[in-house]
Design a protein around this nucleic acid. Structure first.
Length: 789
DNA sequence: CTAGGGTTAG
């Protein structure tokens, strides 16, 4: 892709280190003073590992509470604290985590319980298990870990760091536990998705006569929200009413969030109304609930109401409000809010700043989004960059997306898995194989290969760029492919025209115990439709609901109509539509119209056209198809009439549609009979046609030569037209009698004119089917003028 | 020890 002027390679990427999130290295001078010199020569990590191993031993086999001091039991031998301090500092550096400033004074302060719990709380927030474990070691050494508060802090540390098993060990070994200890443990279970265990310990509190407090209820209720346990949540609500906890702000707010999560807005509202004191979190919960329901206007209304009630929004509220402004697709709200934020100086935070970027991308105002990112300067995070890049991709500004990605790399913003996922989507939209390959290299280098999202994006990108082989390779390198990975490959086969392969991969997937999803069926049904295997398609469609409990959507119905129509069973298609449980949409009718044209059923075509126009009166494809259909049966007067109608109704013809004519000449081919569908004569004719196109369009087009100005869209236009070019070849394996569509705006690469050569060498295998039209790729290299192909 | 927010793949 020539428009991508930057080149990424293994060599150039070497200077950019990947995502090491080093936060401000604190007071290095102070730390240096405390460091023991001989430590520099030691491998700090090894020491850390050793200590960690010993701690695991102590947690699992001995039980912390029974240990008077670690040194007595030989858990930590003669390690002096100075050495441990140095090790902790190295560990912090290693893991990119801020070591607490006071850390190195531990030597003198170890007896202070309050201080040590503060340290533990800090490391639990940071999620630094390694340093947390060293804290644990120090506690064992001094023998103060038998204390309830210290023990609770340890439970919390392990729980927050995801080592729930160790948390439980510490908990079980404690001499005495209180509500707080239970709260920490329960919160840990819920944070690790272990709802049943949380519920078990919650029940145990009653048995041990430790009365749950409002924190306990708050934790439990929000846990219900995350595992979608609404029944339990309602029961807890009842409990909370009985214990008179509901009017407590924290419990009420977690209940509000729970109800909003389940879309139970009435319950949320009545609870909200009953609150004597609504704080900012209560309002935010309601606004967020409405936002999740996509009721953007209502959410904004609440937002204004809140301010009328004298509450000023905080960062949380503002981000949602901004998202709502993006959602309503009206500029006024967004501008007004943004202006206010600038005035208050609240637009400078990362979260709000990113939400502003996101809002502008939603509104399609990429200039403003870019300005916002620029204005944020160094505070812009990965997320901010990702939001901007995703915005470019969604607004179909692919080259800008690639440019931004490049800029992000240049500015040393550490990329994360989201960045790669979205930039791969950009590659597949272009589509550019060489860029995809470059990004793939970066993925490997950044050690994101094992990320399922990225792997799926890679499969998609390779498939869209025509490199089915590499798409397969990526898939087979995934150790545990999920449903999305499977879908990507099934879809890739389907899009490349390997329908049988798509179907057999689908069966393999089912055998391996993966439950197909809605998207799977879309790919599979489409395969059946293109293969013409109606019966199997019908059975698969029925099994969707019967065996997999997937409710068919419009797109599935559309596929089924296509299945019948393509194979000529027009009446069955009509019957299918009439028996649908929903009102048929234009997209459901459309494949039938295409079928009518293919099989020259003018009468039914007219009926279907009417239905579509009833639903979407400005659908240009209807007029174009009807006109072409009339043309094919020789009703030239009706051809003219369709065009007049279209002008009359001011229907705008979108790019991509073509009338059935090429200048004054008309070409119409049939793909021969079924036994010999691809005769040399057809190739000859088509080749002649190509030359014709080349001659007639070379200078008349308003497009200049591709690859001239980076950042312009020439490459895409070229590809777009080469898709059309490939149409001529792509239809070769369609049923006999299928008219070949001819387009007049086909261009060849005007730099090298090599398209012709490639096209003539093109085999059926190289032609990729994509929906109703096809595009091609060339396996080796491409035109001599660039890496475009 | 507690509630609320921003970016991905099909």
């Amino acid at each position: 892709m020539m428009a991508v002027t930057w080149k990424m390679s293994w060599r150039s990427s070497h200077s950019c280190s990947f995502p090491c999130n080093v936060k401000d290295p604190l007071e290095p001078q102070r730390i240096r003073n405390f460091r023991i010199d001989h430590l520099r020569s030691k491998n700090a990590c090894k020491v850390l590992d050793k200590i960690a191993q010993r701690i695991n031993l102590s947690v699992s086999e001995l039980g912390i509470a029974h240990i008077a001091t670690g040194s007595e039991k030989g858990i930590i031998n003669d390690t002096d604290f100075g050495e441990i301090s140095g090790t902790i500092y190295d560990a912090c550096q290693e893991q990119g985590v801020n070591a607490m400033p006071g850390l190195l004074y531990w030597e003198g302060n170890l007896i202070d319980k309050k201080y040590i719990t503060g340290q533990l709380s800090y490391y639990s927030r940071e999620g630094n298990l390694g340093v947390g474990k060293i804290c644990h070691a120090l506690l064992i050494k001094t023998g103060i870990c038998g204390d309830t508060i210290v023990g609770t802090a340890l439970v919390n540390m392990y729980a927050k760091c995801g080592e729930i098993h160790s948390a439980m060990m510490v908990f079980n070994g404690m001499h005495s536990v209180d509500v707080a200890s239970y709260n920490c443990l329960i919160s840990g279970f819920l944070g690790n998705g272990m709802f049943d265990e949380a519920l078990g310990f919650f029940a145990e509190m009653g048995v041990r006569e430790i009365r749950p407090n409002h924190y306990t209820y708050s934790i439990m209720i929000s846990g219900c929200g995350s595992v979608l346990a609404i029944d339990e949540g309602i029961q807890l609500h009842a409990h909370a009413v009985k214990l008179q906890y509901v009017l407590n702000g924290v419990v009420a707010n977690s209940l509000l969030t729970l109800y909003c999560k389940f879309g139970m807005m009435e319950d949320a509202h009545s609870l909200f109304q009953s609150l004597p004191e609504k704080n900012i979190v209560s309002w935010t919960a309601i606004i967020s609930g409405l936002y999740q329901q996509r009721a953007f206007e209502k959410a904004l209304l609440q937002f204004y109401l809140m301010r009328q009630n004298g509450l000023e929004p905080n960062e949380h509220t503002l981000t949602i409000a901004l998202s709502c402004c993006g959602g309503v697709k009206q500029f006024d709200n967004g501008y007004a809010l943004h202006a206010q934020l600038v005035k208050n100086g609240m637009d400078s935070g990362v979260f709000v700043g990113t939400a502003i970027i996101d809002m502008y991308t939603e509104l399609g105002q990429m200039d403003n989004a870019g300005k916002q990112l620029q204005g944020m300067g160094t505070i812009a995070s990965v997320v901010s960059w990702n939001a901007l890049i995703a915005g470019f991709v969604h607004n179909d500004k692919i080259e800008e997306a690639l440019d931004s990605f490049h800029k992000m790399l240049v500015e040393n913003v550490p990329s994360n898995e989201y960045s790669f996922s979205i930039i791969l989507k950009a590659c597949s939209s272009l589509p550019s194989l060489s860029t995809s390959k470059q990004i793939h290299c970066w993925v490997v280098k950044a050690n994101f290969e094992r990320n399922l999202h990225i792997a799926s994006s890679l499969i998609e990108a390779y498939a869209k760029c025509g490199n089915l082989h590499d798409a397969e390779n990526v898939f087979y390198q995934i150790s545990m492919p999920d449903i999305v990975s499977w879908n990507c490959l099934v879809k890739a086969y389907s899009q490349h025209g390997y329908f049988r392969k798509a179907l057999s991969l689908f069966r393999k997937m089912v055998v391996e115990g993966i439950k197909p999803s809605s998207s799977t069926f879309l790919a599979v049904l489409s395969s059946c439709s293109h293969c013409g295997i109606v019966q199997e398609g019908k059975e698969l469609f029925e099994s969707m609901l019967m065996n997999y409990n997937i409710i068919p959507e419009d797109t599935h119905y559309s596929c089924m109509v296509d299945l019948f129509s393509r194979s000529g069973q027009l009446e069955d298609a009509l019957d299918f539509i009439k028996r649908l449980p929903i009102k048929p949409t234009a997209s459901i009718w459309r494949p039938l119209l295409a079928g009518c044209r293919c099989h020259s059923n003018v009468q039914l075509g007219e009926y279907v056209a009417k239905r579509i126009l009833e639903l979407e009166s400005h659908d240009a494809s209807v007029y174009v198809t009807m006109s072409n259909m009339y043309f094919e049966v020789g009703r030239l007067a009706d051809v003219v009439k369709q065009r007049e109608l279209m002008t009359l109704k001011e229907v705008k013809k979108e790019p991509g549609y073509s009338w059935m004519e090429v200048k004054s000449k008309t070409y119409k081919f049939f793909s021969g009979d079924k036994t010999h569908p691809q005769t040399p004569e057809i190739y000859d004719l088509l080749e002649k046609l190509m030359i014709d196109f080349k001659d007639t369009n070379h200078d008349s087009s308003n497009m200049s030569a591709p690859h001239t100005q980076p950042g312009q869209n020439h490459d895409r236009k070229l590809l777009y037209h080469s898709e059309k070019l490939a149409v001529c070849f792509g239809l070769l394996n369609l049923p006999a009698g299928t008219p070949i569509r001819v387009y007049k705006n086909i261009r060849v690469c005007s730099d090298c004119h090599e398209t012709m050569k490639h096209i003539s060498k093109l085999s059926k295998r190289d032609v990729i089917l994509r929906d109703n039209y096809r595009f091609h790729h060339f396996k080796q290299g491409g035109c001599s003028c660039g890496d475009f192909w």
